[in-house]
Amino acid sequence: MVLHNRVSADLLKKQLAAESFRRVTTSFYQYAKIEDPNLFRDQLYAQLFALGVFGRIYVAHEGINAQVSIPEHNFEAFRSCLYAISFLNGIRLNIAVDDDGKSFWVLKIKVRDKIVADGIEDPTFDMDNKGKYLDARAFNELTEDPDTIVVDMRNHYEYEVGHFEQAIEVPSDTFREQLPMAVDMLQDKKDKNIVMYCTGGIRCEKASAYMLHNGFKNVFHLEGGIIEYTNKAKEQGLPLKFKGKNFVFDDRLGERITEDVISQCHQCGKPSDTHTNCKNDGCHLLFIQCDECAAKYEGCCSTECQSVLHLPEEERAELRKGIDKGQMIFNKSKQRIRRRLNEK
């Protein structure tokens, strides 16, 4: 059996659009010791491919991190498949809050050094020594205390469109940069209650362990992240302390939690929280663009990119040669590191 995709992206997207059944988008992760990640990857690929699962999954010696889309009629078979794996038995599945069923169009399972890049090289770091879980109700109660510090362990562009009330941003676009930054920012707050959160729980769980590793005393992390919090808060009729949109790393680029629009279009400054990638493939900048600017600039981040968009494909391909786009993300927060923290 072929253990990777061989169909063109265009055809896969057409097949997805033609599907007559609903899909369910979910995410899960588990820190666990996987002896042979490559063998585990191949076995899992064969099982999920047979169920029509799409998505992005990372496997490493330290565990698994997955965001997937499952045909609704195969969801229970998918759950059973996971539960048959010893360290995934009973795993929490974070069901998407705002799901159009079109989040993924192909299955990709990759073996990596770590399931979340953290930059930690200290051999004494122990993921088993992590912060205390908080469910939605406990999170709401603890964050009512004005002395509690809430720390957003997501990237700047995620924080910009939505975050918890009073949450402190660690203004970086990589998790590996954020970990030492968080320690530095909170160095004189080691005895306070520190609550960390992220999208689905994987980053804040590791961050809580890192904070304890660096001498912090009272560290908590939100179980299941924003996704689980939102689902449980709605089920239990709890006040939603998260405002705005939850950025997600799939084709949706966001799921709405509340109707609050807390960010602005990066081009005209009007209220907007719609992320997009510049339509110029030689740029592909991730930025926020309102509907008016999307029409005016044809989905591009600038008039320069817009002009490139109208060149013949041969010329555009020539312009793209040799370009190292790196991490193309609009970030305007680098100078706001301590302002909110100093208010505590």
Rank of each mutant, 00 (worst) to 15 (best):
F87W: 07
E205C: 07
Q335Y: 15
K130Y: 09
S333W: 13
S272Q: 10
F242A: 10
L285W: 03
M127T: 02
G119Q: 03
G131C: 10
Q47H: 13
C278Y: 05
S302E: 03
E62V: 07
S69E: 00
E318H: 11
V24P: 03
D36N: 05
V219H: 01
Q67W: 03
A182S: 11
V248S: 01
K192H: 07
N94Q: 05
Q187S: 15
L93E: 02
V106Q: 05
I91G: 09
G52K: 00
D42A: 11
S69T: 04
M127P: 04
Q47T: 12
I95P: 13
R137V: 14
T148R: 02
V219N: 00
F287A: 08
D260R: 06
G55I: 01
H4M: 12
K334G: 06
D184E: 15
L142W: 04
A17T: 13
I109E: 01
V151S: 08
G215N: 12
D100Q: 11
T26A: 11
V97I: 14
L88M: 06
G131K: 00
I70F: 10
V53P: 00
L212C: 04
A207R: 01
R79D: 02
Y159F: 15
E19Q: 13
P171K: 12
E235Q: 15
I329P: 06
R6V: 03
D291R: 10
K206T: 07
D145V: 13
Q43P: 14
M196R: 04
C300H: 02
E205Q: 05
Y133A: 05
Q327L: 11
N5V: 15
N246D: 05
L309G: 00
H163Y: 12
R137A: 15
D260Q: 08
F40K: 04
K110E: 14
P271Y: 13
G101D: 03
V161A: 02
I34R: 00
D273P: 02
K234D: 06
D251E: 13
R22A: 14
D251C: 06
N218H: 12
A96E: 02
N218E: 12
D324L: 09
S8L: 10
K102Q: 08
A60F: 05
S103D: 11
R252P: 04
N214A: 06
S69R: 00
C301K: 02
Q335T: 14
N140S: 06
A138S: 09
D145M: 11
K190V: 03
R203L: 11
Y297S: 06
G225R: 00
I194C: 06
I323R: 14
Q306R: 08
L240G: 09
C300W: 02
D147M: 11
S302G: 11
K13N: 13
R41K: 15
T148I: 05
Y31N: 11
E35L: 07
F330L: 12
E19Y: 05
F87S: 00
G224P: 04
F49I: 07
A207T: 05
G55K: 00
D10G: 12
Q67D: 08
F287S: 05
N94E: 02
K270W: 07
E304G: 14
R176M: 15
V170H: 01
E165N: 15
G299H: 01
H163F: 06
L39H: 08
Q187E: 13
K102Y: 06
T199D: 00
K192E: 03
A138P: 02
M328K: 13
I288Y: 10
I202A: 04
Q15M: 03
R154N: 07
Y159K: 01
L222N: 02
